[in-house]
Simulated assay, not measured.
Amino acid sequence: MPNEPGKSSDQVAYEQLCTRWNREEAEAVQRCKRTLQSDKTSRDDKILALNELEYWAMRRGGYDAEVILIGMLKESDKDVAGQAHISLKKTWAAHFNMWVNNDVDHGRVLMKQKKLDEAFKIFDKVAYKNPLWGEGYHLRAKCYNAMKDVPNTIADLRRALEFCPNNYLVMVELGITLMDKTHEYEEAADLFKRAVDLCPILPVDIFLRQLFEKVPHLKEQWEAEKKANQFSLNEPPARLLPAAWVDRFEATERPNQAFLRVGAELEQWFAEVRRHKAEPSIQRKLWSVLVIKWDPDKWPKELRSFTTQVHEALKARRERELAKATPDAAEDWKDQDQVEFEEAEEEYDEEAVAFLRRLRSQRTR
């Protein structure tokens, strides 16, 4: 029963249910993350972990699950990277409300049938009723594009990126539109670069060749930035440093969206550091550079919200990653029951250990 006046039991039950769902999601996402980061995990187990992350990202719209999926796009195993790509496409294209998905599917069918006016009405309604869902604007942009309405196509693609800032598919579509329709080559090049940074398996080579033929100096800039962002254990890449972000519009006007973008880039860098098995001293140095660079006190007041979010996330992640880099890190990956057995062997007699083993066998039945 509610303890506060004016609070219904239904509201209390709903809040408790949300708390339970949040806890379940956090536990499942962390379990999947450990599975994906372990060197002992098989390919099949990694695929299963990606499928579970996809489920949580679609059901709950979980940012944590999405970021981990993005981190796996640079996995050396192409099958795993490809599955992460597919899971992200499904995540961005699906709404947690099944009725919205039904409307979207109906609109897509109408578009295939060239019934653009009817499809537009559906997508327009979806975007209006779900203003924070980026895919709604993406779908409406496709409809505008089919109707040859370039300004509204570009406007809706920009809105889609605003609410789903890591959607590299929208980045490519917007880049192609800007390059072909409005000849905004500089922005198109930046969008292609951001998309490839997130997902190296994207087939954008043909568009880049066309772009570089039209504006040759962009190729030199591209190569220079690519070199500056090469992975190294000596220093973090340029794209993770504040200088690459603080001048962007989102840094002051959309700090949460900017934070989501930085989070995705950081997750991929974390994965690279793990794959190179950097020594604890090197990891400590790299983390220190990032934490110091992102100190909010070093930046103007209007950047405080953005830089503080990144700085706090970096500090929290640094503690976790450095803890894993210690010789005792293997303890974090042990099954909880195994830990119980080892503790029992140290503190209790053989009879107690046998009891725990029987208990574990009952759990697995």
Rank of each mutant, 00 (worst) to 15 (best):
A313S: 07
A264H: 00
P296C: 07
Y137C: 04
A26F: 04
L290N: 02
L48I: 01
E272T: 00
F249D: 09
S9C: 07
L53R: 11
E173K: 11
H85C: 00
I201R: 14
N51C: 10
D124Q: 15
T307I: 05
G61T: 05
Q16H: 10
L314F: 11
A330T: 11
R304C: 06
V310R: 01
V291Q: 09
K298E: 08
K115S: 12
Q221R: 15
H276K: 03
N145K: 13
K227C: 09
I86Q: 07
E173T: 08
R318D: 02
K148H: 06
P5S: 09
N97G: 08
T326V: 08
G134P: 08
A271C: 04
H106T: 15
T91F: 06
E162P: 00
E319I: 06
A316F: 02
M171T: 01
K89Q: 14
Q11H: 08
P216Y: 12
V204A: 14
E15W: 03
T326H: 06
K301Q: 12
W287C: 06
C164G: 00
A93S: 12
E223I: 15
E162C: 06
F249A: 03
C199S: 10
D247F: 10
L211E: 09
G71H: 02
K74A: 01
Y137P: 02
I68G: 04
E345W: 01
T41Y: 10
N234L: 14
R365V: 02
V100E: 11
K193N: 07
Q113Y: 09
D337L: 12
E220Y: 10
A243N: 06
A258G: 13
V289Q: 13
K277W: 04
L218I: 15
A94Q: 12
P216A: 12
M147C: 11
S76G: 03
W245K: 08
W245E: 04
F207Y: 14
E272Y: 00
H183T: 08
Q37G: 11
A238K: 12
C164D: 04
H311I: 07
V12G: 02
A354R: 10
L240H: 01
R254W: 05
A49D: 11
Q11R: 11
C199M: 07
D156S: 03
E213N: 14
M98Y: 06
N234V: 07
R194W: 05
E312Y: 04
C32Q: 08
E302R: 13
L69H: 09
P242Q: 00
E345L: 13
E321I: 07
P165C: 06
R159F: 11
S361D: 07
L132V: 11
P280N: 02
I122A: 04
C199F: 02
V289Y: 08
E223M: 15
H85I: 01
A189I: 13
E331S: 12
N167T: 05
E321Q: 06
S361Q: 03
A224H: 11
G107M: 11
V273Y: 00
E66V: 15
L211G: 10
A93K: 14
K121R: 14
T308N: 05
R108K: 15
V353H: 04
C143K: 01
